[in-house]
């Protein structure tokens, strides 16, 4: 069951990822990215990261991507125009990507120690309680710093989005 779920959702993630890259309309790309995020959330669940799976859907798919979709709709962005691209880039791009991925896969398989099989339920430390405890004890300073970062981002967005600039 674990293998079937992994293969299914990994396939969906890769298909949506490829769709993100090849589609010319931004809305199609955005929806593909949402597909990637949703299937990654399922994989997080398989890895025992239940809180992160929910956070992935709430924060990434539910907030960040809504912003993207909202912006695309607001600007009424149409499909991308084909511009003259470098021939070399077009010919070399896909083989280079495949070569890079092959190299990374080979490195992962050969350099890392033989990793264990992933079983659903083998790791149950990803509950909201465990994450909360860790976040507010061991990682309190980074947590506070990110809140300042968010504040800065809000101010930046407000300043940028004002009428006169």
């Amino acid at each position: 069951m674990d293998a079937i779920l992994f293969l299914l959702f990994a396939a969906i993630a890769v298909a949506c990822g490829i769709n993100l890259v090849v589609q010319t309309h931004p809305i199609s790309s955005a929806l593909s990215l949402i597909g990637v995020m949703a299937s990654l959330a399922v994989l997080y669940l398989l890895l025992g990261a239940e809180f992160m799976a929910a956070a992935q859907m709430i924060v990434y798919a539910g907030a960040i991507m809504v912003l993207f979709v909202f912006t695309i709709m607001l600007l009424n962005a149409g499909a991308e125009h084909k511009k003259g691209r470098s021939v070399i880039a077009r010919l070399l791009g896909v083989p280079a990507l495949i070569g890079f991925l092959g190299l990374v896969s080979f490195l992962i398989q050969s350099l890392l120690p033989r990793s264990e099989e992933v079983r659903f339920g083998a790791f149950t430390g990803g509950t909201a309680q465990a994450i909360g405890k860790k976040l507010f004890t061991g990682y309190l300073l980074p947590f506070e710093v990110t809140s300042v970062l968010i504040l800065v981002a809000i101010l930046g967005a407000v300043v940028l989005a004002r009428k006169e600039i």
């Binding site: 949703a38 929910a54 539910g62 979709v69 909201a128």
Partner: peptide, 17 residues
């Protein structure tokens, strides 16, 4: 589900699409 509430929040977050 032990994260039932988060599931509902996640689904309601996505249903805006």
């Amino acid at each position: 589900v032990n994260i039932g509430l988060l599931v509902i929040l996640a689904i309601s977050a996505v249903s805006v699409y």
